[in-house]
Amino acid sequence: MSAARYKQRGLSLVELMISMTLGIVLMTGVVQMFLTSRVTYGTQQAISQVQESGRMAMDFLAEDVRMAGYFGCTSRNPNVSSGLEASSDYLYDFTQVVSAYPSTASLTGVNNVSEDTDILVIRRASSGSVHLVDSHNSGSNANLRINQEPENDCLLEGQLCDDSIAIISDCSQGRIFRAVNVQASSGGGAQGMVVHSAGGSSPSNSDPQLGGQSFGEGSEVMALNSIVYFVAPSAFPSAGLEVRSLWRKVGERDAVEMIEGVERLRAQFGVDTNGDAELDTYKWREEMSSADWQDVMAVRIHLLLNSIDGNVLDEPQPITFAGTSLTGSDVTDRRLRQIFTSTVGIRARLE
């Protein structure tokens, strides 16, 4: 009988079990590496998103805070009068260059504000300006002839349009008014015209003649706005999780969602308490008296950012923000959180 008839074919049960065990060990290692890489990738993405959003949010806020109270060349000598009819709406109170309100405040165009955050209002003129090409004397007509032609009835890249709030300044005085019309000029030498006559939206101009004030050639005309920052739920929420965002409202326009992942906004205000033009102390919004707002020289901004996605961390991340401890239900989503703080001086108030 040939020995070939007894040649072994296939695998024994022992060999099969050993092979399966080795395969399971190898697959376990591969799956573990995949899960570790996925968690690391998710964490790195969350860190990048939070840091980028935090820097951008702080840049937007810092730029506007720094320019609070900017009224052109009259900023250092704020001899500014308002030609608007009386109004109790916060949008037209340009006597306070910066102010803040609790999240429960009822403010025009500011809706669904998240609790435990501040509403920050900054009042400033636009960075750009147009200039008078001839003098505008007391008692003359309502037309301000300027050196720039409007585009689609707007100036300054859409900042100063029909019915906008504006300010005219000649470095010794300024006047706030509503620009009823922005139009091309029919006269020679001027490219455009800003009309400040009676009419327009409420509050309208109380005097069509700029209250008897005269402004010489070269006087600057700028858009003037109350700029509002607040935190509210995002218009594009993540599935199953609330996403908060930083919103910005400019003047009478609708609020615009700026940056996702901003969970809370709080501010402290640096106040000159003794009138020596030096900052003496910082106060939270709820510690400010009505008189303190006139003496604010700097704003310390506190932002709490979180990752858009939940379950980024292995366990909840307790954190203390602006003196408030976030624990328990505040952090059970296991999002990554980071605090950003910056102190910004108000240029118009600093020596």
Score class of each variant (00 low, 15 high):
residue 122 I to Y: 03
residue 340 F to R: 00
residue 255 A to I: 03
residue 202 S to D: 14
residue 22 L to I: 06
residue 96 Q to G: 04
residue 221 V to A: 04
residue 33 M to D: 07
residue 124 R to D: 05
residue 314 D to W: 03
residue 311 N to I: 00
residue 149 E to V: 00
residue 150 P to V: 06
residue 224 L to A: 08
residue 235 A to T: 14
residue 284 W to M: 06
residue 80 V to W: 11
residue 55 R to Y: 09
residue 75 S to K: 02
residue 343 T to W: 14
residue 129 S to V: 01
residue 53 S to C: 10
residue 320 T to E: 14
residue 32 Q to D: 09
residue 103 S to L: 03
residue 273 T to R: 12
residue 158 G to H: 07
residue 186 S to N: 11
residue 294 Q to K: 13
residue 196 H to L: 04
residue 206 S to D: 14
residue 254 D to W: 13
residue 302 H to D: 11
residue 270 G to Q: 10
residue 21 T to M: 13
residue 81 S to D: 14
residue 100 A to C: 05
residue 19 S to P: 00
residue 189 G to N: 14
residue 86 A to Q: 09
residue 130 V to M: 07
residue 351 E to S: 12
residue 246 L to N: 04
residue 325 S to T: 10
residue 13 L to R: 05
residue 81 S to Q: 13
residue 301 I to Y: 00
residue 49 Q to S: 13
residue 148 Q to L: 13
residue 179 A to Y: 07
residue 209 Q to V: 01
residue 248 R to D: 00
residue 321 F to Q: 07
residue 143 N to Q: 14
residue 76 R to N: 15
residue 107 L to G: 08
residue 318 P to F: 05
residue 184 A to I: 11
residue 279 L to G: 11
residue 118 D to Y: 02
residue 185 S to E: 09
residue 167 I to Q: 02
residue 276 D to F: 08
residue 300 R to G: 01
residue 260 E to V: 05
residue 60 F to M: 02
residue 221 V to P: 02
residue 279 L to A: 12
residue 249 K to N: 04
residue 330 D to G: 04
residue 275 G to D: 11
residue 188 G to W: 04
residue 166 A to Q: 07
residue 32 Q to Y: 15
residue 207 D to K: 01
residue 103 S to M: 04
residue 192 G to V: 10
residue 42 G to M: 04
residue 315 E to S: 14
residue 6 Y to C: 02
residue 28 T to W: 10
residue 273 T to I: 08
residue 343 T to N: 06
residue 64 D to C: 00
residue 111 N to G: 04
residue 69 G to R: 05
residue 302 H to I: 03
residue 212 G to D: 12
residue 202 S to R: 11
residue 53 S to Y: 13
residue 147 N to C: 04
residue 282 Y to N: 07
residue 150 P to N: 02
residue 96 Q to F: 08
residue 209 Q to Y: 14
residue 323 G to V: 00
residue 26 L to H: 07
residue 229 Y to I: 00
residue 161 C to F: 00
residue 281 T to W: 11
residue 226 S to L: 03
residue 82 S to Y: 08
residue 122 I to K: 01
residue 91 L to Q: 14
residue 330 D to H: 11
residue 119 I to K: 01
residue 173 Q to W: 04
residue 155 L to G: 09
residue 263 E to M: 12
residue 20 M to Y: 03
residue 344 V to T: 04
residue 201 S to G: 15
residue 17 M to F: 14
